[in-house]
Design a protein around this nucleic acid. Sequence first.
DNA 1: ACCACATACTATACGGCGCATAGTATGCAG
DNA 2: CTGCATACTATGCGCCGTATAGTATGTGGT
Lengths: 116, 116
Amino acid sequence: MSLIEGEFLRGAGPVAVLKLLERGEMYGYEIVEALEKRTDGVLAMGQSTLYPMLYNLEAKGFVVARWDESGPRPRKYYRLTPDGKKRLAEDTRTWRRLTAAMGALGLARTPEAVYA
Amino acid sequence: MSLIEGEFLRGAGPVAVLKLLERGEMYGYEIVEALEKRTDGVLAMGQSTLYPMLYNLEAKGFVVARWDESGPRPRKYYRLTPDGKKRLAEDTRTWRRLTAAMGALGLARTPEAVYA
DNA sequence: ACCACATACTATACGGCGCATAGTATGCAG
DNA sequence: CTGCATACTATGCGCCGTATAGTATGTGGT
């Protein structure tokens, strides 16, 4: 599963997904793999975590889905809505404030690791 | 309340509390104020968030409590247990991996803000 | 030809925890 | 003496991670 303990993922997970979708539409399974690879396994999450998360983001109007039947197997592509873009911008600011606050408590990673 | 949206606090809250207690024992109300001041309001949390969190950390054996009746009003002081120190060390590593992963997705704060 | 594995999505249910709300009680300041 | 700060306790709602289970098709190996 993920290297990240459950509760950490609550805040970070949805933001990470929205951030991925900023580049263009993706389908669920693709997102699972992208998170695994792009974050070196740290933000890897099972299907049972991602799919409900997508349904949730859709219910909140942050993403919309589209079925694609042209391939060998049907895929459900998700993309950001304008509300989703707003949400991503807000969450990005929140995330940065949070990392700054945690840093103020002495929990920041070492400076030389910033561009890890 | 907090500047941090609820879900972000799930992972960060307990770690922040453990980190504060690393310096020495503190009582609940003091922790609420310290988080407010030391993180510029970002990690501020209400009593209704902190006290149950402390009970929870205690139930897990990460902190122990001691009543102090010497002051004008009774205070319940909490301090880290050996298990709590281990947990803090683990969570610190987890937190750093998480920020690195989020950074890899383009969600890091700008480098010049690292020492904010 | 067959079997295992990867792909891709859906459904259900449990449990943990943030947080709102409410309540108790003492000290201090105007 | 009235109100605000201090300091802790108790209860319950609701969200969401995630374990588990189920369905179904494509693909690679022997």
